[in-house]
Design a protein around this nucleic acid. Sequence first.
DNA 1: AGCTTTCTCAACACCGTGTCGAAAATTCAC
DNA 2: GTGAATTTTCGACACGGTGTTGAGAAAGCT
Lengths: 214, 214
Amino acid sequence: MPAIKSRRAPTKGDQREQALVDAARAVFREKSIAQVTIDELAGAAGIARSGFYFYFESKQALLAALVDQNLAEADLEMAEWLAADGIDRDALRRGLTAGLARWKADGRWLREAFITPDPGPEVKHVRDRLIDQGCTLFSKRIERDAQAGRTVPGPPDLIAKMAVNLRSITFADAYANPGAHNEDELLDTLTDAILRLVYGVTPAAYDEDAPTAA
Amino acid sequence: MPAIKSRRAPTKGDQREQALVDAARAVFREKSIAQVTIDELAGAAGIARSGFYFYFESKQALLAALVDQNLAEADLEMAEWLAADGIDRDALRRGLTAGLARWKADGRWLREAFITPDPGPEVKHVRDRLIDQGCTLFSKRIERDAQAGRTVPGPPDLIAKMAVNLRSITFADAYANPGAHNEDELLDTLTDAILRLVYGVTPAAYDEDAPTAA
DNA sequence: AGCTTTCTCAACACCGTGTCGAAAATTCAC
DNA sequence: GTGAATTTTCGACACGGTGTTGAGAAAGCT
């Protein structure tokens, strides 16, 4: 699985593997992961149940692969704001908008992968890497801003984790209760909430990009 | 099961039922709920596996009962602050401290009951009631404060839900990574984070109980 | 005591998981 | 193309946990 697998044309098996991942993404949209049987997954990819084990060790391993393929996608969303300087509410809101869209589509399994406390070792490993990465980037941005003079109310890593968690859980909640809130309102509220959480600023302060005062 | 069960001495069966709940609380501390077998639960309460089904329909039903018994406990924690007026940081912090203590002890199953997206119908029902109740109370407090002149940055119910979720997920995280942060620091940060989230105030404003300005 | 309700548990059927090994399909070298 | 090597497929099996049933033991009541 590590380095050796590199140079080779996409053989039949590779296609099947990808078919399995794609099938999983589709099937996991419909029912909770626990309810999905391996038989179902295999069937959706056009192979027999026992054939599944040729490609993945377990349902969790397949989910881990699925999560892994979403890594790049998720990163990109926030990249703009994370790289930016100052508050830049617009960039943040754009990132959150993209995230919400992704969750609206794949929320069902995203929840189970990112929110569930104990999703099994394979998934846990991949997702922890992903989360850590997100938190670290966030944390760095906070520190950067702190050095630029903007007050940050607490340990950057803790604040970053809270912000990241607030984001996921709000998206998860939005998926679970689709009609509960107007989408724009939710995004605005979340954007402001994060800014308030991280910088302690109120909407009035957004325009003035001047750091300085406490 | 509903109303009729009321007036009666605690018969043998009632004791067993409670023993089962207590046993579950203990067992669920050690391993994740999915890993615990009904056989184990029954054994811990001193009965045969098949006897379990006389008392509960499933593992989830037992967990639901366990969650239900914690209702009162959890309510009480936040009651003081929820009933108070003004910011009252101290009361909030006391409540959060109690919550963290509870999560430190029972975090394992609390996570699985309150964080897991799809914990089965029985648990979902109980916990949703509990969460709704918490959010409503919180929301009411926000509205009350808004009328008293304190600015609230967004729809009260949304803000309340965010605050409640932030609380749970921070506790869950604290349980999962015990040594990651100093406990006092975590509580202070969380307290301030919630106040910032809900009222947009910074620590400086805590003492002055004067509402007014934006 | 007798009768009724409550409780207990062994035996059973069921379903999903994961393993194995033999056969079929594919790929590769010539 | 042809044959050997490799990859892929799948039926059959063993295992473990769930939930049900029905007969009988224990507890509660008068």
